[in-house]
Amino acid sequence: MLIMGCSKRLYMEKSGFKIHQSCCIVLLLALKRCDKMDMCFSFFQRMVGVNVKFTVHSVAIVIDGLCKRGEVERAKDLMEEMVTKGIEPDVVTYNTLINGYSNNGIVDEALKVKTIVERKGFEPNVVTYNTIACGLCKLKLYVEVKTWLFAMIEKGFTPNVVTFSTSINIYSKIGNLAKAKRLFEEIEKRRVSPNNVTYKALIDGYFMKGNLEEA
């Protein structure tokens, strides 16, 4: 069905019909959800070539799909190409790229993107800070993670479930279960709903300490 959809779009293009942006967005989303990113990227480039006017949200669909496949440099190249065409990324799009770098352990590049965000006059948000903190955590840079999360709070951002889960994970990994448990209790006081990641972080800590009863 997706291939037929792409074929119809290309037929319309060759026949001189005007291709509406909304139709392209639906197809891009469908291709991304089916993990057909090569086809998604190719279709997007083809539509750009016939002057279909995309918004930043349309570009973000392709960038997000590429990042989730680990093709972060390709996503970055696409973002830079779109800037030359007058489509300026927003904070959500930049966060998508930051997330791509962080998930792939390339935190230095994620920090560079954050610097670009600030230079362009955007304010990094709680998602930006949480994403980079998670990337540092994956690299086992626990001291840096704590510093980063403290900086986030000093900026006035309210910790959410991702912030707490990351913090609990850190203290569990370094064996400070008392602190991890206090943070878990803090979640309940703030009426933040813990998720599977939160519970897993605390349970893993108890298992590492051999405290099966608490786990």
Results as ranks from 00 to 15, higher is better:
66 L>H: 11
60 A>S: 14
101 Y>Q: 07
100 G>T: 03
94 Y>W: 06
108 D>F: 02
88 E>P: 01
50 V>D: 09
74 R>F: 01
69 R>T: 08
87 I>L: 05
89 P>E: 07
82 M>C: 12
88 E>T: 15
92 V>I: 15
41 F>L: 14
44 F>H: 05
99 N>T: 13
49 G>Y: 13
56 V>C: 04
81 E>D: 08
58 S>L: 04
76 K>H: 11
94 Y>K: 05
106 I>R: 13
98 I>D: 02
69 R>V: 05
101 Y>K: 04
106 I>Y: 08
55 T>K: 13
46 R>A: 15
80 E>D: 14
66 L>N: 03
54 F>W: 00
83 V>H: 03
86 G>S: 12
91 V>C: 08
55 T>N: 13
73 E>G: 04
77 D>N: 06
48 V>R: 10
93 T>K: 05
101 Y>V: 10
69 R>M: 14
64 D>N: 15
111 L>R: 11
92 V>F: 15
90 D>T: 04
59 V>F: 02
45 Q>H: 15
62 V>Q: 14
105 G>S: 00
41 F>N: 05
46 R>S: 15
58 S>F: 09
110 A>R: 01
90 D>I: 03
47 M>F: 01
38 D>G: 05
107 V>S: 03
79 M>C: 08
64 D>K: 06
51 N>E: 14
59 V>E: 11
90 D>W: 04
44 F>S: 00
75 A>C: 04
99 N>C: 11
65 G>Y: 12
75 A>H: 03
73 E>S: 14
96 T>A: 05
82 M>N: 08
73 E>L: 11
82 M>K: 00
90 D>C: 05
